[in-house]
Amino acid sequence: MFLKLIHNDTAITEGSPFTSDEVQYNLIHRISEDPNSLCLKTPDEKMIFAQTPGHKGWLWISNDIPSKERTSLINELINQLAEVPLQGVTGDPKTARMFTEIFSKINNVQYEKDMTMEAYHCPKLIKPEGVKGEILKATEQHVDVVADYLAGFMRDAFGTTVEPSSQQTRAAAMIAGGGLYLWIVNGQPVAKANISHRSPRHARINAVFTPIQHRKNGYASALVAELCEIIESEKRIPMLYADVKNPDSNKVYQNIGFQKCGLIEEIKFF
């Protein structure tokens, strides 16, 4: 039996079993805010499924649930999702793979791993010193440069080549969201980063990017550190996800105080 999980549900509030894995599964907070999302929980609040329509579902199961019970719960969930289009699943590797093995056999689908990310939080910031430049909140006048950076981010992160012009609408939306910041040196942007979402105890940083010609100068580190200070002033803890295939970015985050909180694996169905 599954119950509906709502925004600020008791299953994800402070003191619930979920909070022990909250950094890993922070995106569940964001999904639960969407009135169109499908969010479910077990009555004991030790299993949560959350999916935005058209996207992979996120699946969390408390670590104290034994393997046999996990299998039973996953089978029950898959039965509940029988009429729901599911693009894939996201969760810690053990949970994501267990769900995938059962789901693929029942529904006769193929699958492949999309990405493995390390979840990080920053309980104590180590601010870099001696980095030239300053932070600036992005405005409408920066749409072109942000669109160019978004295209660069897609190339580096996903190997996808797109024209910067195709990213203008997204760039404008990110700027309008109020969380996008640039690092400025001699009046010119050299890096970007975004505070993409705030949950009750954390704020998530994403879209960190430095063009190739400006790398190895500490600009991204300095900018992310400044965003951490903004987040800390709100009495929240900074967190982010980093692709494990990018050791440079992982090192950058660790050098300014980010600590590993567990892996998240994305698996795509087709």
Rank of each mutant, 00 (worst) to 15 (best):
E118I: 14
K4C: 03
F18V: 00
A147I: 04
K132D: 02
A96H: 05
S72K: 12
E140F: 04
L81E: 07
N79C: 04
F99Y: 15
L125P: 07
R198D: 05
Q168S: 07
V252G: 06
H197R: 09
I48A: 02
V185Q: 07
T52L: 08
S104R: 07
F270L: 11
I264T: 10
G187R: 05
H29K: 02
S233K: 13
K105C: 01
L223G: 10
L263Q: 12
G218A: 06
I74K: 03
G91Y: 00
N75T: 09
F209K: 04
E134P: 00
M1W: 04
A176K: 15
A173Q: 12
I231N: 08
R155A: 13
E163T: 15
A147S: 11
A176N: 11
T42N: 02
G178H: 12
S20K: 15
Q188W: 01
Q213R: 11
V185F: 11
G257A: 08
Q188F: 00
D148W: 00
T13N: 12
M47R: 06
P247Y: 05
V162N: 01
H197T: 06
N194V: 02
E118R: 08
E234N: 07
G130T: 03
N255E: 13
K56N: 12
Q141D: 10
R201V: 00
K268A: 12
N107I: 03
K260M: 07
S37T: 10
Y149V: 08
G218V: 00
L227W: 07
I78D: 09
A119P: 07
Y25R: 06
M117T: 15
P247S: 06
K245S: 13
Q213S: 11
N246L: 08
T160V: 15
I65C: 10
S32T: 15
F18W: 15
D144I: 00
A225W: 03
A203V: 05
S165Y: 02
T160Q: 10
A96P: 06
L40R: 01
L180E: 04
Y241E: 03
F103V: 03
A222Y: 02
A173Y: 05
I6V: 14
Q254R: 14
T13E: 09
I106G: 04
N194D: 14
